[in-house]
């Protein structure tokens, strides 16, 4: 016990500042400002792997580590779509997962947001569309924010999630990616 406490005290707080939202990741804007404001304070996320190679999952996991510390921002992963405000979907959407993904989407209460993660979630990636794959997440359910990258870094995923719950900045459409990145990247 003493060793555990000593370790905790010795390491201290390692959390880094969160990235900025990034308008270039936004695909559509379907939520009222007021709803976004309420969601933004305590967002719940349901992750759905709809066919990914599991690379994106590794980086989504990293959001929960003490360095990105997503819970410190009031954002939490939940076990059921019924508890979720936002679906974080990795793809390509395999045809064997298509029904499950639609059911998850339907089970998520309105108003809801969908963020597609990774090259495959955005476009189908190297797998594309085939006898077994529907390709991009937006081919199956409406997508609000799409985060490319193979896999995107935790910072990019976090920037994408924050974009989804941030009111679109109409005037300045694009925040530069440099501004969103941390010095360590």
């Amino acid at each position: 016990m003493l060793r555990t406490l000593r370790k905790i005290a010795g390491i201290g707080i390692v959390t880094e500042p969160a990235p900025q939202s990034d308008e270039s990741l936004r695909v559509r804007d379907a939520l009222q400002a007021r709803i976004r404001e309420v969601m933004g304070r305590a967002l719940t996320i349901r992750h759905v792997d709809a066919g990914s190679c599991n690379g994106c999952e590794l980086e989504i996991h990293a959001l929960n580590n003490p360095i990105y510390n997503i819970e410190g921002l009031g954002i939490r992963f939940v076990a059921s779509p019924r508890h979720a405000d936002l679906l974080l979907v990795t793809g390509p959407v395999s045809k064997n997962m298509e029904v499950a993904l639609r059911r998850v989407y339907d089970a998520t209460p309105d108003p809801k947001l969908v963020v597609a993660v990774g090259e495959c979630g955005c476009t189908g990636g190297i797998f594309g569309e085939s006898y077994a794959s529907r390709g991009a997440v937006s081919n199956v359910i409406p997508v609000d924010v799409a985060i490319p990258g193979c896999p995107p870094s935790p910072n990019r995923i976090l920037a994408g999630i924050l974009t989804a719950i941030t009111q679109p900045k109409r005037a300045a459409a694009h925040v530069s990616t440099e501004a969103a990145a941390r010095p360590a990247d």
């Binding site: 792997d49 066919g51 990914s52 190679c53 599991n54 690379g55 994106c56 999952e57 590794l58 390509p92 395999s94 064997n96 997962m97 499950a100 990636g125 190297i126 797998f127 594309g128 085939s130 006898y131 077994a132 794959s133 193979c150 896999p151």
Partner: peptide, 27 residues
């Protein structure tokens, strides 16, 4: 559930580019 047609996809790629798909069999 995550069967996405990897083996058929391989046959559509040039052999010198197949390593990219191989790397994405299990990330």
């Amino acid at each position: 559930y995550v069967h996405k047609g990897i083996e058929r996809r391989f046959t559509e790629l040039p052999i010198l580019e197949g390593h990219r798909l191989a790397a994405r069999v299990s990330g």
